[in-house]
Amino acid sequence: MSPTLQHDTPTDTETALPLILRGTQTIPTTELPATDWDEALQILVIKGTDTPAHTVPDFIAGTTSTSVTDNIKDEDD
């Protein structure tokens, strides 16, 4: 192996691309399938168990941040 690094000089348009880019392949773009199975899963997600929004955690109870919790609840409701 040569101890020195020899960077090649491109001489035309083709050689202006490094080796890794010469193997580029065009791939077709496909649309994501919307199957019944996918929709069924999404419904399950929507029906997932909720943690009650009105639960005020210990750290925040009694501080001014409580109002933030209330606001969050109000926005959501």
Partner: peptide, 30 residues
């Protein structure tokens, strides 16, 4: 995306030493 906006990909390729010699790496890490 390629020059015309087409989706392009690079997959692993199998190359011989002489094929590498006839190409250029141009200092880009391979």
């Amino acid at each position: 995306l390629g020059p015309e906006g087409e989706q392009e990909a690079i997959y692993t390729r199998r190359l011989r030493a002489d094929e590498i010699r006839s190409a250029s790496l141009l200092g880009i890490p391979h």
